[in-house]
Amino acid sequence: MNLTALQQRASLNQQVRVFFAERAVLEVETPALSQAGNTDPFIDSFSVNTPQGLRYLHTSPEYPMKRLLAAGSGDIYQLCKVWRRDESGTRHNPEFTMLEWYRLGFSWQQLMQEVADLLHLLIPHLQQLPHFRSYREVFLETLQIDPHVADVAELSVVARERGIVINGEMSVQAWRDLLLTHCVEPQLPTDRLTFIYHYPASQSALATVQMHQGQAVAERFEVYLGALELGNGYQEQTDAARNRLLLTQDAQTRGNDIPVDERFLAALEQGLPECAGVAVGIDRILMCRMQVNDLKQVIAFPWEVA
């Protein structure tokens, strides 16, 4: 047991609650188990057999929180445990703590600034102002290539020049992801936050998509400290038909092994207010706050001994 980590986590949670109370953002609770899991092809849910049937541990409180927004809750936040079938390592624990919040009438740019304000409060040794860079800019600055227009051949050449050799075929998006994680993220500054925004439209998830400099881009952002990703935010897609299409396509990509959340989609048909939302990983923020490099140093009971 690391008593300092327990104390720091308690202090951090208190600061989070004061931060949102001062902004009149309501704390809510939603179920950890639901009848529908996450259909995102890149996120796997844990399932649980119950007397009432199969249930899924939530990978994020996004869907029920949006149901509350559609029902008129106003601005809300939640501090909760979530579960993802990820590998266990220095930056991953299958059970972790997430802070997610939604702001009505906010743009994604306003939300980025609020995220920066909160993270500077929670990680007090951060003194430098954040960097704000588009997805295109970080690729041009680091790799001298425009990821929105480069094809597979061009991206693979850039990878090979940096010693990355892949056997077999990969999609354009897979090459972008590889270059981002192996080449761009390691070059991000360690003394300040970096916000990367305007991801390719193919990575929009449930964010809105707009044209920018001749390219369709997702109105979403990710925030990093060094190469460590801390959070992911969207200008939320409010079109019910678009949301249904995205979830259905994701389910089909997965092989329809996870049911689409029809209660979530029904709530959206009643009308999701214009809003921006973000989720940040509290355990990783606590790592940064304590200036340690392993999640096991900030979690009382890591996965292996839980």
Rank of each mutant, 00 (worst) to 15 (best):
A10E: 12
A10C: 08
S11T: 06
L12N: 01
L12H: 07
L12G: 03
N13G: 01
Q14A: 11
R17I: 09
F20K: 11
A21L: 09
E22G: 06
A24E: 12
T30V: 06
T30C: 12
L33S: 07
S34H: 13
A36C: 08
A36M: 10
P41Q: 09
F46C: 02
V48R: 05
G53L: 13
G53S: 12
R55Y: 13
H58F: 06
T59Q: 10
S60G: 03
P61K: 06
P61Y: 03
E62W: 04
P64G: 09
M65L: 01
K66M: 07
L69K: 06
G74W: 11
D75E: 08
V82L: 04
W83N: 01
R85K: 12
D86L: 09
S88K: 13
G89H: 10
G89K: 15
T90R: 15
H92W: 11
E95D: 08
F96C: 05
T97H: 04
M98R: 02
M98N: 04
L99R: 05
F106V: 00
Q110S: 07
E114P: 02
V115P: 00
Q128E: 15
L129H: 11
P130H: 07
P130S: 03
P130N: 03
L143D: 04
I145G: 04
P147D: 10
H148R: 06
A150V: 02
V152L: 07
L155W: 02
V157S: 11
R162T: 05
R162N: 15
I166Y: 08
M170N: 12
V172E: 15
T181P: 03
P186S: 08
P186E: 11
F195R: 00
I196S: 05
Y197D: 06
P200L: 14
Q203F: 10
L206W: 13
A207P: 00
M211D: 15
A216V: 04
F221I: 08
E222P: 00
V223R: 03
G226P: 09
G226Y: 12
A227W: 11
A227T: 04
G233H: 07
Q235S: 10
E236P: 02
Q237L: 15
Q237S: 11
A241P: 00
N243I: 07
R244Q: 06
L245Q: 14
T248G: 04
D250L: 06
D250Y: 15
Q252H: 13
Q252C: 09
D257A: 14
I258S: 04
D261H: 03
L265C: 05
A266G: 02
A267D: 07
A267S: 02
A267L: 05
L268P: 02
E269M: 04
Q270A: 13
G277A: 06
V278N: 03
V280I: 09
G281N: 05
G281W: 09
D283Y: 14
I285A: 01
V298W: 05
I299R: 08
A300P: 04
F301I: 06
F301N: 00
